[in-house]
Design a binder for these strands. Sequence first.
DNA 1: TTGATATTCAACCAATTGGTTGAAGAAAGG
DNA 2: CCTTTCTTCAACCAATTGGTTGAATATCAA
Lengths: 114, 114
Amino acid sequence: MRSERLDHIMTALGDPTRRAILARLNAGEARVTDIAAPFDMSLNAVSKHIRLLERADLVKRRKAGREHYLSFNAAPLDEASEWIEQTRMFWARRLDTLECVLKSDLQEKKGRKK
Amino acid sequence: MRSERLDHIMTALGDPTRRAILARLNAGEARVTDIAAPFDMSLNAVSKHIRLLERADLVKRRKAGREHYLSFNAAPLDEASEWIEQTRMFWARRLDTLECVLKSDLQEKKGRKK
DNA sequence: TTGATATTCAACCAATTGGTTGAAGAAAGG
DNA sequence: CCTTTCTTCAACCAATTGGTTGAATATCAA
């Protein structure tokens, strides 16, 4: 099974701090220090979270002198979305079928009653 | 931040074994032993994976005597999907706006050329 | 050069995850 | 009853995650 990218993406999204970082990046590029500021943890802890986000390619880094500007990269979300929607649709279809079966059963009962 | 459910859902989806278990459950209810059979790991290991899936409410358990029948529950996927689609749409909109700006710039240039 | 700022690296620690083996408990089949 | 089957529980171990502090590195600014 060659799904390591998906593993990394889902894992990266499975932590509230990291999702908050991504939300922060919706407002645009930001430096590591800026990103870390609102969090009640050390800069180093945030730096590590960023590393996991980079592993999942959800964050891009642009270095300008001593400052590192992080930006959000939405592309990996497609892969996560694809898996989820694929699975959801499969079951949506099954439930439709089930509903259809139940309806036809109901119709059949009505028919017999008459 | 009260996002523990989402944490559990994403975390559950962040492992290939667990996604494979869910895929297996697409074929319908199955016992723990049946689910574990194709995997190259102990029954106990699979049992633990199932526990994480249950924590995320992605799997329901029905006990019939000594056998436990697991089934897939798609509902939590809505929550994961919501977060992802929300975020994707935000950026899709931004890119549309950017594209629009670029186009209008192009138009402007053309206009000036004439 | 000196000093402040921005960041990572390294070592450490606790909690979680991902796996093992060996039991225990509960139900089925003789 | 006894044995087998299905499953979890408990203890253990390695790797990863989530955090800390302290140091190293690189850049800016005086």
